[in-house]
Nucleic acid binder design. Structure first.
Lengths: 216, 216, 216, 216
DNA sequence: CATGAATGAGATTTCATTCAT
DNA sequence: AATGAATGAAATCTCATTCAT
């Protein structure tokens, strides 16, 4: 089982039962969309790469856009996953007694996720500006939910005196920005530079802790 | 003279003399490219928006891609501009005795630039991943030059004991990331949210100062 | 079954199975190319004449030039056919004991061929000077092979004392030139003049025999 | 003065006074037309090669076709020249007492002409099939006149008992065909093969003499 | 005379989508 | 379900020609 396969399995398999061809179509589409962008990818190219007939794509997805959405929607769901924990506070109290632990856990978790789902994330990032539906979905289902949770988390640690007293949304913006900045630079802009991941992640955490944390 | 006009004037006029139609083509192309992306914009659409025959576009730009490059290249040049100062140290010594002043000046300068050249920056950001030539140009002409300058600036302030002692490239990555993060969130992702720019910028500077600066 | 149909059947059908539309495209292309030349024929014109959507042409031939090559290549093959006989000498010994018989047979055979494939030959002759690929193909696959065979044939009859003793390549040049000259004048330059084919062919054979043969 | 220049001078200069630019246009057009064909040559290409503005071409020639005609017409005139001699019989009686001398003189003269005007002849040969006006002109002004003259010449030598007794038009067809065949093979189809011109011409003359002449 | 920007008709080519098999 | 030929609208690009300067 290839890396790609596992990705597909993880993201797509559990929802519906996908035929073999359908999986191949999705894999091919992810590959092309992430590399050339949605608009610059032709369905015939996807068909060829997937080893299916052109018509087969349209048997499963009414339009090309449907195919994009069929890829992006589950990606968003997964992106959201770690933030959708029911008893968040309990988790925080028991697992991450202080902010730094939480930050570290979150960053590491998301870095792993990013590494595994790089093409999918690229598609997400690159296509959102051009498709209002995506933008809306992203805003409605991701941003809001993550934001709400994260506001609570921030307040939680602010109450504990571990985060400086600025509006939670600023904390969130600066945190996410810093993490996304690392991921984009690392995996999208300069994937070929030689990175010492451990060092960079540590530096990033230290930077965030100094910028946002209170240490006595 | 419209806002757009002044942008064009600034960015494109001084290099070559552009005909009236050529200016209109550039304005229309910027508009469409930034809104729908390069691949999803048709030349006929640009021609119509510019009030020009489609053939006219191809008289000035041999291909559609040439048009993109003709827009992006000068943008890169301008993006680079503030970092290309000859006597950098003198400027630093006299104008920005401490890091915070420099940071503040730079951020404000780039925020103004971003506000004015938003569509151009959108095009730049959105198209770089899809066009290796752009990526190369960007890397060669922008990143390297800015990086070199900025390494020196960082070392300058590190010697003065105003920046913590970590590798300059980490300082740079974290700084640029934080600033870009602000700009992208502010102007590209959520331009319609209600932002209190002054507060956010101040928060960003404070965050950077805490994260990177040494204050005694 | 029309005349055209049989031509296509003969030349194109046996290689691959062509769809009905593809045949129509080929017939239309041959018609237009031979009449107006490749460069002056538009694909839309071919599509219209073939009763096919323009896109259909490009489904079968990636470019307009491919269409030309798809027509010309099999023509070359057929042109070559009569010269590709395995046991050439046996044929000569049994069927054509003397040079005149051979000459007569060859001329008649090629005249029939020319009459039947006139448009294709026109295309071949007219386009070869403009397309290096064609020229190369023609040289490599036709000229060389025909030439080699023909040198042997010439030597065969020279040994029998039926052809004058000059270099074989001169014999060949003069023979082909004379035959081609007749065909081009007859069918391409002045197809509408009133020709007495039998007389002309007989005169041509007599001319060649006097010019090249030895009769005791 | 270049070779090209002399060609132009000879063919075009004496008729009208041509400006410097006009000459350049003609030279460029001859070059491109002969190499790529009329239909595949763009006026802008000619303008560029000639070093003039696109508009300049149309100042001198109303249409692209006019340019072609402006090149081809004088070529035809020159092609005809040697046959337009008033007192043909006197010339024949005094200069060329026998057919072989005449043949030799004519071939040599036309070979020289062909060598010097190769591109022009290529254009003539290649474009005639596609332009009815050219065909008509060629037929009316060249073929007929040459034919008429040549019928008389043939009859002249037939009366003298030097040419076999077949219809003059057959003599003409076979003669021209043989000469053209040599020229086309020599200069158009295989200009790069190594030719021994003297030998080939001599062989051609001998061939014609054997095929058509009477030697006692 | 000369220029070259501008045009718009048309050429080649691409592509999402349909449909008969 | 799958195929792939066919479509026609639209995309990119070319080009002969015009015209203001």
């Amino acid at each position: 089982m290839t890396e790609q396969d596992s990705l597909i399995t993880q993201l797509f398999d559990n929802e519906d039962e996908l035929t073999d061809k359908q999986k191949k179509i999705i894999i091919a589409a992810i590959d092309s969309f992430s590399e050339k962008g949605y608009a610059a990818t032709s369905t015939s190219e996807i068909a060829k790469k997937a080893g299916v007939a052109e018509g087969t794509i349209f048997r499963h997805y009414k339009t090309k856009k449907d195919l994009l959405l069929g890829i992006v929607a589950p990606t968003m769901a997964k992106l959201l996953a770690p933030f959708v924990i029911k008893d968040l506070y309990k988790v925080l109290d028991t697992k991450y007694e202080n902010f730094e632990d939480f930050l570290r856990a979150m960053i590491e978790n998301r870095v792993v996720f990013a590494k595994k789902n790089l093409p999918l994330l690229k598609i997400l990032i690159q296509e959102i500006p051009f498709h209002p539906e995506l933008k809306d979905q992203f805003f409605e289902h991701i941003i809001k939910k993550v934001f709400d949770r994260y506001v609570k988390v921030t307040e939680h640690y602010q109450e504990k005196g571990q985060i400086i007293d600025i509006p939670p949304q600023q904390v969130i913006r600066l945190t996410l920005t810093t993490i996304m900045g690392y991921l984009i630079g690392r995996y999208i802009l300069f994937p070929n530079a030689d990175w010492n991941d451990e060092d960079e992640i540590e530096a990033t955490i230290q930077f965030l802790m100094r910028g946002l944390g209170i240490t006595d």
